[in-house]
């Protein structure tokens, strides 16, 4: 699964400059991608994103993860070590992934996406008969 950032014809993305003052200011969530026999699992750290503000979609074999952050800070800053921006990252999927069966969940700021493989791509043990 290769990382990609596609030139998009998605009108929603093109509309971003009017929504935010700095459309290029997003951050890339760090991910773990693990392959099981039955498919791939993507784990993305997206602290500050609630489940109604996360978006996962697949379009033309491209998996797009997007998370919008809304939070309020109290008081005057004494020291600042991190800034939270909106999250955005894209991956190119290959033919092995069954795109109809992708599921995602968000738990304690970690987005987990299950990408099952199509039947044909799963490893199969072929019994050898002696005779």
């Amino acid at each position: 699964m290769a990382e990609t950032t596609i030139a998009t014809t998605n009108t929603e993305l093109e509309a971003r400059p009017t929504e935010t003052r700095e459309p290029s200011r997003y951050q890339i969530p760090p991910v773990d991608i693990y392959e099981h026999d039955h498919g791939l699992t993507v784990f993305a750290d997206m602290p500050g994103v609630s489940s109604d503000r996360v978006e996962v979609n697949v379009d033309n074999d491209v998996l797009t993860i997007r998370g919008r952050v809304q939070r309020e800070t109290k008081g005057d800053a004494v020291s600042t070590e991190f800034a939270i921006l909106d999250y955005f990252r894209q991956f190119k999927l290959n033919q092995e992934v069954d795109q109809e069966k992708i599921t995602a969940k968000l738990n304690h700021g970690v987005l987990t996406i299950d990408l099952p493989k199509v039947e044909a791509a799963r490893p199969r043990q072929i019994p050898v008969s002696v005779g």
Binding site: F43, D45, M46, P47, T73, K74, G75, D76, A77, V78, S79, T80, E81, F82, I84, N107, H108, G109, V110
Partner: peptide
């Protein structure tokens, strides 16, 4: 990573810790 802020009555700490076992 931490962000620390304060006002007259309180100190506020915000820690970036995704995926930690509560």
């Amino acid at each position: 990573l931490l962000n620390i802020s304060e006002d007259a009555d309180n100190v506020y700490i915000e820690a970036l810790a995704p995926g930690v076992d509560p």
